[in-house]
Design a protein around this nucleic acid. Structure first.
Length: 439
RNA sequence: CCGGGCAUAGCACAGCCAGGCAGUGCGCCUGUUUUGGGUACAGGAGGUCGCAGGUUCGAAUCCUGCUGCCCGGACCA
């Protein structure tokens, strides 16, 4: 992509409405624009990041055996009356009426709808187990949205729903998602700690929140110091292996949200306890027959007797993750994207646009990278080098390739790693090899 | 929802107290200059001063009502 033609409205100054760093940087880097309290438009750069995050989430869901579908954003109120949540959800649910005066709602979650879809087609224990998910926009009418996309009213969420014949099966489904979540967050370049959590309005009695530690986190959390240096994925099993041991070990190291933490009854000594703030990026629940019973999701068991299916639900805040990753990875100059979610892999800077030799070399490097399948943002604007450096640092592209008069003369380009600031002068071929070779 | 604050050009803000030509910096456009970390100079474009009403010869400025947004809290997968 040539930057001269790209819609990338970066800002030099901080918009006054943005207080926390991820919100400021997302606005300044031209990723998002606010259209109302807690409601954002995603501009091309932000959309690219969202798609990258979504893809990793999708790949890990698929790898775990879950199947993707897509449910609507608008739901009939009737479904929610059956579960009793139409009243329970309160003002956080956005309620609307269609032209026939039918009561509808903009879905805050999809337990009722998926259970309804499931029950209409799955009648036998032979149809189990199933895990169905989608990645869809949700709306929760938060009293007080804040922190940009991290606490928006409209947000993109992956939600999965598991159906099993018995509690043992549901436990395995829960553990598979537990593993899928750890794999997902690791790939996103995040250290997410699974913490015992309240199950809230979803209901149920087994629940973990996946938390990233960050000063700007919304909730207080507590964990064993061991977590700070632990690479929990080092000994992670495959999805088809026995997950019980891994699950026991990962959940055996103390970690709890403040609702679940009791200082008077804490299993670890004070000098090992870390008190911090965290951003919730995922939440998983086992809730048994809470929805299957009222909604009639019943299958015939092996003995022919009806059995209400055992369910769980599993959420990942996809749009929130864009903000959370920035909270965890930025510096004074701007965003530092992990390679896995970067909107472009390489930012190519022509330091002297208009100079025939620089234009030629930059265009050739651009072509070479594109042919090699690298997503590259080529800054071909007639701007000062300083402006280009500042913009490229701000938007956080992991690698920068600098083409300037000096290097062109001696036949080299400069390669800069955004995260470390490390630079090296290389021949064009070795730079290309480095950027297209194995990571 | 409670409490506090803000609303003037794309962005950040001054002007309001004490009514009298709509301003500054950045950004944007044109030209010159400069060319390895947001360059310099000159010229230019850009405004329903959030909306509605009131007071006044005259309102960005004073008064009333409304709306939107932000912050703290409570709430919240």
């Amino acid at each position: 992509m040539r930057l001269s033609a790209y819609f990338l409205p970066t800002l030099k100054e901080n918009p006054s409405e943005a207080q926390i760093v991820s919100h400021r940087l997302m606005l300044r880097a031209g990723m998002i624009r606010q259209t109302g309290a807690g409601i954002y438009a995603w501009l091309p750069l932000g959309q690219r990041v969202l798609k990258r995050i979504e893809r990793i989430v999708r790949e890990e869901q698929d790898a775990s055996g879950a199947q993707e579908l897509l449910m609507p954003t608008i739901q009939p109120a009737e479904l929610w009356r059956e579960s009793g949540r139409y009243d329970d959800y309160g003002k956080e649910m956005l309620r609307i009426r269609d032209r026939h005066d039918r009561e509808m709602l903009y879905g805050p979650t999809n337990e009722e709808m998926i259970t309804d879809i499931f029950k209409n087609s799955c009648k036998s224990y032979r149809d189990l187990p199933k895990n169905l998910y989608h990645i869809q926009w949700k709306f929760r009418d938060e009293i007080r949205p804040r922190f940009g996309v991290m606490r928006g009213r409209e947000f993109l969420m992956k939600d999965a729903y598991s159906f099993d014949l018995d509690a043992a099966g549901a436990r395995r489904a829960y553990q598979k998602m537990f593993l899928a979540y750890l794999r997902t967050f690791a790939r996103l370049g995040l250290k997410a700690i699974p913490m015992r959590a309240e199950s809230g309005a979803i209901g149920g009695n087994l629940s973990h929140e996946f938390i990233i530690l960050a000063e700007t986190g919304e909730s207080g959390v507590f964990c064993d110091r061991t977590w700070l240096d632990l690479d929990v994925m080092a000994e992670a099993p495959g999805f088809d292996d026995d997950l019980e041991r891994f699950f026991a070990r990962a959940t055996g190291i103390y970690a709890a949200t403040d609702e679940k933490h009791d200082a008077a009854d804490c299993p670890i000594p004070a000098d090992r306890l870390v008190s911090a703030r965290g951003i919730e990026v995922g939440h998983i629940f086992y809730f048994g027959t809470k929805y299957s019973k009222p909604l009639g999701a019943v299958v015939a068991g092996p003995d022919g007797e009806p059995v209400a299916v055992e369910m769980g639900s599993y959420g990942i805040g996809v749009s929130r993750l864009a903000g959370a990753i920035i909270e965890a990875s930025h510096d004074e100059a701007g965003i530092i994207w992990p390679d896995s979610v970067a909107p472009f892999q390489v930012g190519l800077i022509n330091l002297k646009s208009g100079d025939a030799a620089c234009d030629r070399v930059a265009a050739e490097v651009y072509g070479d990278l594109r042919r090699a399948g690298v997503e590259v943002l080529y800054d071909d604007r007639a701007e000062r080098p300083g402006v280009k450096f500042a913009d490229m640092d701000l938007i956080g592209v992991p690698w920068q390739v600098l083409v300037g008069p000096r290097g062109v003369k001696s036949g080299v380009v400069e390669l800069k790693r955004r995260a470390t600031g490390e630079r090296a002068e290389l021949s064009r071929d070795s730079a290309l090899a480095k950027l297209t070779g194995p990571a």
